[in-house]
């Protein structure tokens, strides 16, 4: 089990913990391939999703993971909640906690919000993305996918391309990949590269060709179109030209290199249509693996020692 209350980021998660989550996710993925992909391990537990930002896949993935383990789910949607009436995050957390969930899965547009929330609840807080800080379960599912496709993470060369500055995925991936022994190169517009990021142990490349040469994994980040409107890069066209991934560029990478993306993709911008549809691209595997990894995280935080295979299938 994970001997921690919350999962807020991969920066403070140990190699052993990451290893445990990935290994546990293997078993979960097996459960998901059964005719009835459901176990009662977390029966009687409640998982609350609290999303302050629109999200389809992450929320659905967490809810699916909770249900596959037999847990009940509750969800609080921002638009329908009292947040719009000016309730503070502290009060929302106290209120949600009073409903008795065992875990709160939280997404918020401000960095550090789940850390703040965790102070006011006994429930396990799982960060499902906070501002530009971290998105640890995305980092874990990316690690899981790389390990599945490449057989290992240690010793691999991985390039992350795009808006590093605003990306919580990039931060979790950097911690995850470097902790597990891979080398990471970053590339993106200089206006979207956070200062002193090299101190995390990564290499920053100015040109994409330099970044992807010989790498085993090319990880493309989603570019938010409002960054262009904010004047951080001149145009979508120039962005695609300088930083877009296509099959021709992929020839620079290692022969069996794969292309990843956290979704949703901007087809034709950071990833060309041919690239998106290529069998070198593993975006949909990432989505499936996300379910397994989130099952593992919920189980390891809430499971209290029961093996996920104990008991009979519920339905």
């Amino acid at each position: 089990m994970l001997h921690r209350k919350d999962l807020l980021g991969l920066q403070e998660t140990s190699v052993e913990e990451i290893q445990l989550i990935l290994d546990t996710a293997e078993g979960m993925k097996q459960i998901l391939s059964r005719p009835i992909p459901k176990v009662p391990t977390l029966r009687g537990k409640t998982v609350c999703t609290l999303f302050y930002e629109a999200s389809t896949r992450t929320r659905t993935s967490f809810e699916g993971a909770a249900k596959a383990l037999g847990a009940d789910t509750m969800s609080l949607t921002v638009a329908a909640s009292s947040v719009t009436k000016g309730e503070t995050l502290k009060d929302t957390i106290l209120t949600v906690s009073s409903l008795g969930p065992h875990a709160i899965v939280m997404r918020h547009k401000m960095s550090g919000s789940p850390h703040f929330a965790a102070k006011y609840t006994k429930a396990h807080v799982i960060n499902a993305g906070d501002g530009c800080h971290e998105h640890p379960t995305q980092g874990l599912l990316d690690l899981f996918t790389v390990r599945e496709k490449k057989g290992r993470v240690e010793g691999l060369q991985i390039a992350i391309i795009g808006d590093i500055l605003h990306s919580r995925v990039a931060r979790s991936d950097i911690w995850g990949y470097t902790k597990m022994g891979a080398s990471v190169r970053l590339c993106g517009p200089s206006t979207l590269m956070p200062v002193e990021i090299e101190k995390t142990g990564v290499t920053v490349c100015r040109r994409i060709e330099e970044a992807i040469e010989g790498v085993d994994v090319v990880y493309m980040l989603r570019i938010q179109l409002e960054r262009q409107q904010a004047g951080l890069f001149p145009s979508v066209l120039e962005y695609a030209r300088l930083f877009g991934m296509n099959p021709k560029r992929l020839e620079l990478a290692a022969p069996e290199a794969i292309v990843m993306h956290p979704g949703p993709i901007n087809r034709g911008i950071e990833i060309s249509a041919e690239m998106a549809d290529s069998d070198r691209t593993v975006i949909l595997d990432q989505v499936t693996n996300g379910l397994a990894v989130r099952m593992a995280v919920l189980y390891l935080l809430l499971g209290g020692g029961a093996s996920p295979d104990e008991g009979t299938d519920e339905t």
Binding site: Q11, S111, G112, D130, G131, C132, H133, E134, R168, R171, P194, V195, E196, I197, K199, T200
Partner: peptide
């Protein structure tokens, strides 16, 4: 402060 800590925390520097 814009710097390594802000970069790690994902806060605007």
């Amino acid at each position: 402060n814009e710097g390594y800590v802000a970069t790690l925390l994902g806060l605007k520097g």
